[in-house]
Design a protein around this nucleic acid. Structure first.
Length: 418
RNA sequence: GCGGCUGUAGCUCAGUUGGUUAGAGUACUGGAUUGUGAUUCCAGAUGUCGUGGGUUCGAGCCCCAUCAGCCGCCCCA
């Protein structure tokens, strides 16, 4: 039997309902902040990611689906979406005015990784990118949008981990100090950390090995090396978040895996989904646009893992909210014709209605309604047709009543049928 | 990429030291009279025991390979 490719999965049923609910909520929340959707291609040129995500990162070094297309182009299935959005914004000259440009995206991303719960080779991200504003107010606006979005989904207890990773000007001094600190006690660090100190020193800070965390005791703090601008930015952002009631904890060891971040970096972890605990992350990336060949435009953005978010929501909230349609059951051939006509009128009026077309026994249809979780059943037989009514059965209570045909639409929440 | 575990009906699992036609619960199908469900009762159907090789008189059980999934690391969403 044919099976889906490793790491690729089919989405349907209860899980897909969460995906849909999250996506609908996201669009509503982001659109009202003035963000607009952007959809970029899944395939990008390799260079886009090498220059943005960073060619020392694992994502670029070993996790990309990359291949040569029939025209000899070296293409990559996007491992994340920020680089593509930036590329598109530059290509279409969207960043030439002084107005901010606000985008959100929803789409699949691809990384060739070892499978695990919450980690798939095709996974979905929702993200928002804000271009053109360097102020901490811009960070706060984006973060409060994200926070309110998560609140609207019903996640109450999440807290942002917040840090500032400074600027390329302030970073060398810290890195030198940190390397010296590391060198002085390098025998206490694990093999992975020795690799990290060379490739991405900041990553040593969030090593999970307890002995490494112990060895980090008293390490130089990024905040002690921050330039004046980054410090003021960070202080102001914290002030704003406090004013807005957005909960956060400062985490001086928080760093981001992607190379393009400056100043603000943040993430949210969840304890509900095993080792793959990161559900979202982001921060400021003031240099990326210019680095990719665009104008010198600051930016702030983040991405949420939809697969993991859906998993967390399913765990803390159970089933995704949904209103099942009503079910119309005709009895007999004459009723079948009339039911089809009635259903069509109701559909036109915007009523959610499922039509029983199998024509079997009523008890079968009711059992089926029960399985589908349908609350309201309309029964249309010869008696009802002659009386110009429909029998309405409320599945939860078993109570039945009779409605005139002309009132069905209105009483099911649709438009009037006149 | 590294280390460990698992794979038996749609789902959750049992299957005794290898021994005849592989089981349960649940779900499913039909029935308990004509137009009333989810409870109850009766009946029924269901599997290449992940796949391919091997050992054996005999393999769901042992060995090897392979595929898929799970757990931890790495990485990250």
């Amino acid at each position: 039997m044919a099976q889906s490719v490793k790491g690729m999965r089919d989405l349907f049923g209860a899980e897909l309902r969460w995906f849909q609910h999250i996506e609908e909520t996201a669009r509503r929340c982001f659109e009202r902040h003035g963000y607009r959707e952007i959809r970029t291609p899944i395939l990008e040129e390799l260079e886009v990611f090498k220059r943005s995500v960073g060619d020392s990162s694992d994502i670029v070094k070993k996790e990309m689906y990359d291949f040569e297309d029939k025209g000899g182009r070296h293409v990559v299935m996007r491992p994340e979406n920020t680089a593509g959005v930036v590329r598109a914004a530059i290509q279409h000259k969207l960043l030439t005015s002084s107005d901010p440009v606000l985008f959100y995206y929803i789409g699949p991303q691809f990384r060739y990784e070892r499978m695990q719960t919450g980690r798939y080779r095709q996974f979905w991200q929702i993200g928002a990118e804000s271009f053109g504003v360097a102020s901490p107010e811009s960070d706060a606006e984006s973060l409060v949008m994200l926070y309110d979005f998560l609140r609207e989904l019903g996640l109450a207890k999440l807290t942002f981990s917040l840090n500032s990773v400074g600027t390329p000007e302030s970073r060398p001094a810290f890195q030198a100090a940190f390397r010296a600190f590391f060198a002085a006690r390098q025998e206490r660090f694990c093999g992975d950390c020795h690799r990290r100190i060379e490739e991405n020193p900041l990553r040593v800070l969030d090593c999970k090995v307890p002995t490494c965390q112990a060895a980090l005791e008293g390490h130089p703090l990024i905040s002690d090396f921050l330039d004046e601008g980054s410090l003021r930015h960070h202080a102001r952002l914290k002030e704003l978040l406090s004013e807005l009631g957005v909960p956060f904890t400062e985490d001086p060891r928080l760093v981001r895996g992607l190379d393009y971040y400056t100043k603000t970096a943040f993430e949210v972890l969840s304890g509900d989904i095993g080792a793959q605990s990161a559900i979202l992350g982001g921060g400021r990336y003031d240099l990326l646009v210019k680095h990719l060949g665009g104008p010198d435009v600051p930016a702030f953005g983040w991405a949420i893992g939809l697969d993991r978010l859906a998993m967390v929501l399913q765990q803390v909230r159970g089933e995704a909210p949904q209103t099942p349609p009503a079910l119309l059951i005709p009895l007999g051939e004459r009723a079948a014709t009339e039911a089809l006509k009635l259903a069509r009128d109701l559909w036109k009026a915007g009523v959610a209605l499922q039509l029983e077309t199998r024509g079997g026994a009523l008890k079968k249809a009711l059992a089926s309604a029960n399985r589908l979780g349908i609350q309201t059943v309309l029964i249309l037989g010869d008696g009802e047709l002659d009386a110009g009514t429909v029998t309405v059965k409320h599945m939860a209570t078993g109570e039945q009543e009779s409605w005139p045909l002309s009132e069905v639409s209105k009483r099911l929440g649709g438009l009037s049928l006149d």
